[in-house]
Design a protein around this nucleic acid. Sequence first.
DNA 1: TTAACTGTACCGTCTGGACGGTAAAGACTG
DNA 2: CAGTCTTTACCGTCCAGACGGTACAGTTAA
Lengths: 179, 179
Amino acid sequence: MPRKPEARQKLLAAFEHLVLTEGERAATLDAVAAQAGVSKGGLLYHFPHRQALVDAALARCEELAAEDLSRLTASPRGAAREFLATSVYEDSPLDRSLGVAFRLVQAREPGARETCARVERHWYHAVLEDVGDPVVATAVQAMGDGLYQQASMGLLPESSAEKRQILERLLESLERLAP
Amino acid sequence: MPRKPEARQKLLAAFEHLVLTEGERAATLDAVAAQAGVSKGGLLYHFPHRQALVDAALARCEELAAEDLSRLTASPRGAAREFLATSVYEDSPLDRSLGVAFRLVQAREPGARETCARVERHWYHAVLEDVGDPVVATAVQAMGDGLYQQASMGLLPESSAEKRQILERLLESLERLAP
DNA sequence: TTAACTGTACCGTCTGGACGGTAAAGACTG
DNA sequence: CAGTCTTTACCGTCCAGACGGTACAGTTAA
């Protein structure tokens, strides 16, 4: 029996890690291979070219987002509140994957924009179905995106106490908008 | 009298244009020089290395943001409403410069994060002074950032009618939050 | 045996940057 | 005011290194 291709997942994780912490430019083939503890030849065995890494990262993002969507719609406190509450960057697999996707959009990687657009649309519809009001849904989506924007720029405070305060303020806003 | 360095401004504009439309990776020295209609040597006369281009773009961003801040605080309808209303990407010099700064943050350019953090802080304080409530101020800032996030990912609709609708929804939310 | 690698040696292209040259506008000097 | 010097504002070329990608021979574990 062949060994399990565990290197493939390590490579993808290494790619995500490098994109998130060092920027897309730093995620070169050599860097990804080194980060994963895999030879360059091994990398190119699993991902015959760089685009394959990008595609895999985007596919994983859509996969995780789809899982998250069913979690949102099933939440007892409603999709809107659940969406906001989990929009604060917490380094979950989805957070990481989404952060990677956002950066790939900025790097003008083919397909990245479409992936993010689909994910956004699904979330918007889930929130809208929850609150019923397009005004509130638009506000919730903008706030969620704003949190990601701040997180992806490293503008959010480090301490979870301060992050919690920001989150509570946004949830309080939602409470006033959709009591 | 020395000739006016009009090439310098053309080069900075070319750099911004390339970062915004093609991504930071595409804004190479050759590309910037070609876009500005200047030789590579000419570029390196004004900006001795690539970092100088980045620094100049960030300095311009802080400059424009400072101008905008006084505009916000002087607005008759209040800083919060004025902030939201001008957060929809309209390709103003500030919008462009800020978009460039955001992308430079994602590209992990030194100093970019600090520039954006300063600008955000100033805006937050201006909005807070207007509305008086940290809950509302945090919500307004998140919504503004969300708009920029969406714009920088090309997720906002093309037509100004649809953009206006989004903006009106956010302004309506603000009306409900701070009547 | 075979899939899953490692390791090395390349290749063509692109990139940031170094460098030497040049044209013209002032400034200085006689 | 003519001749020379200096500074400014560029141009064009060259280069070392990095990058994506290829090729292929060897190694390891199920």
